Simulated scan of single mutants.
Amino acid sequence: MSTPDLSLALRLADAADAITTARFLARDLRVERKPDRTPVTDADVAVEDAIRAVLAAERPADEVAGEERGGTVGAGRTWVLDPIDGTKNFLRGVPVWATLIALVVDGTPVVGAVSAPALGRRWWAASGEGAFTSDPNGTRRITVSGVHELGDAYLSTTHLGSWVEHHSREAYLKLADAVWENRAFGDFWQHCLVAEGAIDLAAEAIVNPWDVAPFQVLVTEAGGRFTDLAGAPRFDGGNALSSNGVLHDEALALLRG
């Protein structure tokens, strides 16, 4: 099933894919460094501008908050955008990057779309409508895993160094030691893998709202849980944990140290 807002989000993802795929591996890709020392490419800016133009025409009363052009999430309807999540991968030619689109209504994400064209993958969800993915083999509904024991769980994070600066490296390592396997799939992909049941936990010591807004609805519609590291179901808490739900509280307890 679909809703008008979800249909729009998927069309926005189509527009983004047309730009990002054309600029991926381009020899004339322009890269600059932002004040926080993170990179931004001409593709990041072009995608956000293109999405904002469509939203201005089709949802003129809605607010927009994006990584490159700014904006805030308040009351009412706000589209939250990350034009390229995984810019470091994008500029180095690693195909693991995606455009993230979420509609937040009164502080809660109700629509989420994640498009990773270099992987041939897309994930989406809307409140009450379930979670879905598409790949070259077609479209299917997704659910989180049924793993019930932390010792059987598969865990992912982004950059281990971020735990040193922003939370607790020791707490993360406690969780890593408690699970069956851990990797650093990083960024958007790990939360999508939780939603489709390929892994069981994804933890991040620091995130911006646009990094994770789609995953609150995607993971929960897939049957899992998405919270900050304090356990609050929010995308703007500055950090994040997504899980299959069963393992969530035990993982949170270890991450709290």
Rank of each mutant, 00 (worst) to 15 (best):
G112F: 02
L81G: 06
S134K: 07
G86A: 11
V114R: 06
P95G: 03
A118G: 06
D106V: 10
G128Q: 06
F132G: 01
L100T: 12
R121K: 14
E129L: 11
I101L: 09
G128C: 09
T133G: 04
W79Y: 12
P83I: 14
P117H: 00
P95Y: 05
K88W: 00
I101C: 11
L81A: 05
G107S: 13
W79L: 08
T133P: 00
A125C: 03
V94I: 15
P83F: 13
T133W: 04
D82Y: 09
R122H: 03
R92H: 12
V110M: 09
V104F: 09
V105A: 13
V110Y: 03
V80Y: 07
R121E: 15
T133M: 14
W97M: 03
S115Q: 14
V94S: 09
W124N: 01
S127A: 14
V114T: 11
A113F: 09
G130M: 04
T108R: 15
P95T: 05
A116S: 14
I84D: 01
S115L: 04
I84K: 12
L91H: 00
A118M: 10
A131V: 12
V105K: 05
A116W: 11
F132C: 02
V111Y: 03
D135R: 07
R92P: 00
V94P: 00
I84W: 11
W123K: 05
P109D: 05
P136H: 08
A118R: 02
A116D: 03
A113V: 15
A125Y: 02
T133A: 08
